[in-house]
Simulated assay, not measured.
Amino acid sequence: MGFGLLSPGGEPLPRSFFDRPSEQVAPDLLGRVVVHGSVAVRLTEVEAYGVPGEDPASHTYRGETPRNSVMFGPPGHLYVYFTYGMHFCANLVCRPEGVGSGILLRGGEIVDGIEVARARRSGDSARAVGDRDLARGPARLAVAMGFLREHNGADMVGRVLAGAPVAGVSAGPRTGVAAGAERPWRFWAEGEPTVSPYRKHVPKVRVAR
């Protein structure tokens, strides 16, 4: 049975929900439901990124550029970027327009449109993807949800639903970042199998030839 967007707890969150510091919004996003087309994901893992000049791990650290301009727009919009030459990742913009902050959607449980999500994640592979791993990790989540470059800047107000509270919230270092890794701004729902494993950033070592 589908999640049912008109079911109890399915009310959209207002723009004011996102008009706060990202480290406050991020834990509040756990258990919320993000809808894109026919697919919905219940968030179980997110990461907060701060404002220019204060958070060296944030894409906005050095100020506004054509790539990150959406993060300086109104709160509640979607910031989609391409990374490692192969993956899209999706963020929700926080704080007032002009500030530059957001939250990376790291993992969740597909609660509606699961057949569509499975097809997107399996692609041309003959190997089926287990339900736990459909949106377990930021790149997987973006694929399962169908977030692409053309969705950069999309207004998500009305498409992020109240969902239901999680049993418990844990916080720890952000995963895979070099600068600012010590900040405990990765938040996850305790006991959720769709939370991705923590990976500490390992700098590349150039081998002399």
Rank of each mutant, 00 (worst) to 15 (best):
L105S: 05
A57L: 07
S101T: 07
F82Y: 15
V177F: 00
S16A: 15
V129Y: 09
V25C: 12
G172S: 05
R149P: 02
V160L: 03
A128I: 10
E115R: 13
A167K: 13
S16E: 15
G98Q: 07
A117Y: 01
G102H: 03
V166H: 07
G4K: 03
T44S: 15
V99C: 04
H201S: 06
L134S: 09
F147D: 05
P173A: 02
C89L: 14
V39I: 09
F88A: 00
R67A: 13
R174Q: 04
A117M: 05
P138T: 03
T194V: 15
P12R: 07
M156T: 04
R209T: 12
A142N: 07
V33Y: 01
P27R: 08
E97Q: 15
Y198N: 06
P193T: 11
G107F: 03
Y79P: 08
A126H: 11
A48W: 06
V157Q: 01
P193M: 07
G9Y: 00
L13R: 04
A154W: 06
H87L: 13
G37T: 09
L29H: 01
S16Q: 14
Q24M: 12
A171C: 12
P8E: 00
F88D: 00
G191S: 06
A135P: 00
R140Q: 13
R127H: 14
V41P: 02
R140G: 09
L6T: 14
G102T: 03
D55H: 04
R42F: 09
F18M: 05
L148D: 14
V160G: 03
G63V: 11
G146M: 10
T175G: 13
P14E: 12
A189T: 11
S22V: 07
A139E: 05
R127F: 11
R136T: 11
F72T: 01
R95M: 14
A128V: 12
A208G: 05
W188K: 05
G163Q: 01
E190P: 02
R120I: 10
V195M: 06
G63K: 11
V129N: 07
V160E: 00
S16H: 10
L161Q: 02
C89H: 04
A162I: 02
V25P: 09
P74L: 12
L5R: 15
L105W: 00
F187I: 00
V116Y: 03
F88K: 02
V166L: 08
T83F: 05
A162V: 02
R95Y: 08
G146T: 09
A167D: 15
L104W: 00
I114H: 05
A126N: 14
G10I: 03
G76F: 06
E97L: 08
E64N: 08
V116M: 06
P21Y: 13
G100D: 08
L104R: 00
G180F: 01
A178P: 04
R140W: 06
R121Q: 11
V93H: 01
A57I: 06
G102F: 04
G153Q: 06
P173N: 02
A135V: 03
A208M: 10
A167V: 13
E11D: 15
R140N: 14
R174W: 00
E192V: 09
M145P: 01
F147Q: 01
E11W: 04
R132I: 13
A57N: 01
H201K: 04
S69I: 10
G153I: 07
S38V: 09
N152G: 02
A171S: 15
A171M: 10
M1Q: 12
A128D: 14
